[in-house]
């Protein structure tokens, strides 16, 4: 069972396109300086449409995590246990990612992680993910 792929729309396409190149980009408001995670047509702070995409450093900190033993769909049930996490990335936004790689179930809140890219599906769609540094 294959894991689902995101369906990019006009707001989000630059984010996913950048991920295919191994880059993590976040929206930056040219008017008020707010950065936002979920891409939008306007700034979620001041509603300005003047948004720029900026590259984020591929580092982050674990804000919270859960080791999931009961997946929501058949594809995720095949993948359990997996680690769901909220990561505060260096670019200033919070993303939901999986912690992948060795020692993932031993991750702790406050731990620094690196952002990595994991191919998914037959076409190898690159999904931003997080990996422990100290493991």
């Amino acid at each position: 069972m294959t894991l689902p792929l995101p369906s990019p729309n006009a707001d989000s396409r630059p984010y996913w396109d950048a991920a295919q190149q191994g880059r993590l980009v976040v929206q930056h408001c040219a008017t008020c300086g707010t950065v936002q995670a979920v891409p939008r047509g306007c700034c979620g702070n001041c509603q300005s449409p003047a948004l720029e995409w900026r590259d984020s450093a591929l580092r982050g900190t674990v804000a919270s995590f859960s080791v999931v033993h009961r997946g929501p769909t058949a594809a995720f049930r095949d993948s359990t246990p997996y680690v769901l996490a909220l990561i505060d990335v260096a670019g200033g936004v919070r993303l939901m990612l999986n912690i992948i790689g060795p020692g993932r179930e031993e991750v702790q809140i406050g731990e620094e992680v690196e952002i990595t890219f994991e191919p998914r599906g037959e076409a190898g769609f690159q999904m931003p993910q997080a990996r422990r540094i100290t493991a």
Binding site: P6, S12, V38, F65, V68, F76, L84, M96, I109
Partner: peptide, 28 residues
């Protein structure tokens, strides 16, 4: 069906269920 409250691009593709989302709150 309940997991569909997760964001279709930024949460659901990472396997967020409703219990898992509340688990993030619980862990914090």
């Amino acid at each position: 069906a309940l997991a569909s409250v997760g964001h279709p691009e930024f949460e659901q593709p990472y396997g967020m269920s409703v219990p898992a989302a509340y688990a993030l709150v619980a862990q914090a």
